[in-house]
């Protein structure tokens, strides 16, 4: 199996919404010398679960290793490599560009029409373009805007979801150890 050609893989991890979980995942990538392209994390419709989308540049074998190592983390509930299946992926970018003359403003409008992008803020000097699209489209919009003059740029990193009825979820309902006797205690600083 030709295994040495790195390629982009999208891994989706369902994790417990607990302090330190992001740190555990990040530490894993550093420790095992895996290359992260982007990592996004956010809450899901279940308050006890968060979801990460991790884009990695890896060989097929390394992507598998990353998958298995993620599953090994106690707080990681499930992992899917959505690159292997039909999926939807989106990256969001905010791009601040020069817009201080007619040429740049016209150029901007024309370029944005050809992308799922829009101008969300415009002033006499600069404009902010927002795009939500597949990563390669975001890349190509950025390339087109470069000649006009990019002043600032921020991206969320890719989020992804497998298509169809293969659902990445967990039946787990957290058991709250907080019993009826619990009093919400404020932290006190004792002498150490």
């Amino acid at each position: 199996m030709p295994d040495h050609k790195p390629k982009k893989y999208l891994l989706v991890a369902l994790v417990e919404n607990k302090p330190g979980v992001l740190n555990r995942v990040a530490s894993l990538f550093r420790r095992r010398n895996f290359n992260v392209d982007s990592l996004t994390v956010g809450r899901t419709h279940k308050p006890h679960l968060s979801r990460m989308t991790i884009a990695v540049d890896a060989t097929r074998g390394d992507a598998f290793k990353i998958h298995m190592n993620l599953l090994k983390l106690i707080n990681v509930v499930d992992v899917a490599n959505v690159s292997h299946e039909p999926h939807v992926s989106r990256d969001l970018a905010l791009i601040k560009v020069r817009a201080n003359d007619a040429e740049s403003r016209n150029g901007l409008t024309l370029i944005c029409e050809r992308y799922p992008a829009r101008i969300v803020d415009i002033g006499p000097e600069v404009a902010i373009v927002e795009i939500t699209a597949q990563e390669d489209q975001v890349e190509s919009l950025i390339d087109e805007l470069k000649p006009i003059g990019i002043l600032e740029l921020v991206r969320t990193g890719v989020v992804a979801m497998g298509r169809g009825v293969r659902i990445l979820d967990s039946d787990y309902e957290p058991v709250s150890p907080i019993t009826a006797t619990s009093e919400a205690k404020s932290y006190e600083v004792y002498s150490v």
Binding site: V15, E16, L71, I74, V77, S170, P174, V175, T179
Partner: peptide
Amino acid sequence: IEFVYPEDVIRLPGY
């Protein structure tokens, strides 16, 4: 606190 011993390990959905 009032001590209740958890007889089962039930909080490890990822393990």
